[in-house]
Design a binder for these strands. Sequence first.
DNA 1: ATGCCGCACCTTGTGCGA
Length: 262
Amino acid sequence: MAFSLATWNINSVRLREELVQKLLREEGPDVLCLQECKSPVDKIPTQGFADLGYPYMVARGQKGYNGVAILSRLPIVEAGAEDFANLGHARHIAGRLENGVTVHNFYVPAGGDKPDREVNEKFGQKLDYLSEMRDWFKAEKPEKSILVGDLNIAPREDDVWDHKKMLKIVSHTPVEVDLLAEVQEAGGWADVTRADIPEGLLYSWWSYRAKDWDAADKGRRLDHVWATGDIRQAAHSSRVLRAARGWEKPSDHAPVFATFDL
DNA sequence: ATGCCGCACCTTGTGCGA
């Protein structure tokens, strides 16, 4: 069975209900993982999604901030949710498909402005969150699993518009990039997007503050699709739907897609 | 160094995103 999957930081699922529906109608991924829903679970507008053929959802939510959801055409059973670093935030949900594949959907803390945990508590929380992800996957030894989400780190030089300028900017500092590599190593995760698209600049986020995001193209690749080693070869057809960043009242993130033959 | 934009809410300012 082949199934397609997308991950998208939606920046309010209620405000952008119609954009989610547009994506489901026009692109039709079998599974759509959303981050920054900014909604309690019982206020997520599920009816319209169900009407489009997506009756299954597992989610974690809270009022105003964070929030993750997995929408699916395929039956999905909840496999769990973790609260790494004990932040009390809705940043992770995992679900299992009937083919035995587990999907982990993450919204890693952004980390604030200054990359120094002595003066910026949020940066410390980001590092702690990643460390606990690493330790958890090291113990868990995930198999037949996909990890997606807004990891809020652009690891490679060609994942940012200017590597040297970004070295002290949160999301591309060496300490974050190294920790993300440790998470990857601990879970045996492969970067599906970069296996499919190994060369060249590739972004999934462009700031709202840039006047002309498309022409300036000062982006970062913050949104990721990973797979465990046992299924990494089944992945193909990765792409970033850059056009979605140009939709009316857009999210500042574009959806990232992959297909798995399993 | 700051502001730029845009979200939700304890809403006409504030905290957060990154």
